[in-house]
Design a protein around this nucleic acid. Sequence first.
RNA 1: GGGGAGGUUCCCGAGCGGUCAAAGGGAACAGACUGUAAAUCUGUCGGCGAUGCCUUCGGAGGUUCGAAUCCUCCCCUCCCCA
Length: 405
Amino acid sequence: MISASEQLDAIKQGVVDLIPEDSLRQKLEKAVVTGKPLVVKQGFDPTAPDIHLGHSVGLRKLRQFQDLGHQVVFLIGDFTGLIGDPSGRSDMRKRMTREELLANADTYTEQAFKILQRERTTVECNSRWLGKMRFGEVLELAATQTIARLLERDDFARRYKDNRPISLLEFLYPLAQGYDSVVLKADVEVGATEQKFNLLMAREIQRSYGQDPQVILTLPILEGTDGVEKMSKSMGNYIGITEPAAEIFGKTMSIPDSLIAKYFALVSSKTPIEVQRVVERLAEPDTNPSHLKRELALDLVTQFYDDEAARGAEAHFDRIHVRHDVPESIVEVRLAGSADGLWLIKALTDSGMCDTSSEARRMVKQGGVTVDGDKVIDIELRLQKKKDPYTVKVGKRKFVAIVVE
RNA sequence: GGGGAGGUUCCCGAGCGGUCAAAGGGAACAGACUGUAAAUCUGUCGGCGAUGCCUUCGGAGGUUCGAAUCCUCCCCUCCCCA
């Protein structure tokens, strides 16, 4: 294990808050002396089945702790997920069922190991202790905090002021999260900046339970591909780390230019110095941002797959979006046609290219449908029976080979 | 328990008896442009083999030739009082 101050320098990279820094230094020094690794915790509520780049910001920090020799607790909030984290929310959440959460939790952990090392990871589910608490124990926990204290939280305060509902359940969320830290005897908890309140409250709760409070470490929030909202499944602006290479590449290319530097800093494999160089290049007037985005996209695909996949994804991108060509391989669908062939609109819905016939009509009307390279303008077009498939393109990037038989 | 305000299409939000599949914005999608699935501009945006028909405005009934709009009951949210 390297010296405490070297570790501290490494850990501080990219963090927004580190509270209190002295305490972390002491904990690290103690770890170096005793050889006992720190327990570093981050919780993830399995509200969606996929881990995306937004999660990876925290996971990468956890990985860094592991590389320094510490123990990570990957905490699955299968119980807190039932409550729904109110952090950063302006409305009450729709509650999820236990079944949904458990199904998601399954895929979650495996995906997390794309970033974390297994040997130094403990996977825990907070239902193990939260699910067993007796009411008396809950009361004891609740007694540690006050309503005024909870209302200090910006999102609660705002909602309260705007006469928007806050359920009592949501008030309990920070308490539950804090109790996790008590049970796990966490030395450090990592979270996004919006978690600051919850993380700090955990310190108070640990103190109430006679523990040395954890150090809290917050990281910037990663905006999604829309460039505005926090990356999340529900906003549909996420890049999943297990998505196909071409998707990761393409979605990365779709982020607004303004986010390039941030992505490099938070989720690329580049060192801080290399990131700095990217920032400088962005500032140069003759730099085309798309070139930098390409580098970013290649870097990301390489991280989650390999070089070869990255080059393949880039080639695919050039083919479809730069040369407006047809992809290397297209899914083939066989559809039955009658004597006078198969109505194109029907073919589009039956092949799954369009969800509804209204949508299919719209696509054709807007000039978004191409058959064998020719733009279709006739909504009544019929595809005659033919041995060879028709190459059908819908929109910018949906292709299908349709055989009418 | 009493009094008041409100629940509208994916989201926000107008509409307050026919001209409403429902303004406007956002998201999404399509087209143009582009060294980007960026930015910008234009358009589309419930469903159905469709110049018409069907389903939607918290839920269930009712009034009316006709209801998102009026009435009754119920469910949910917010505010004030207790």
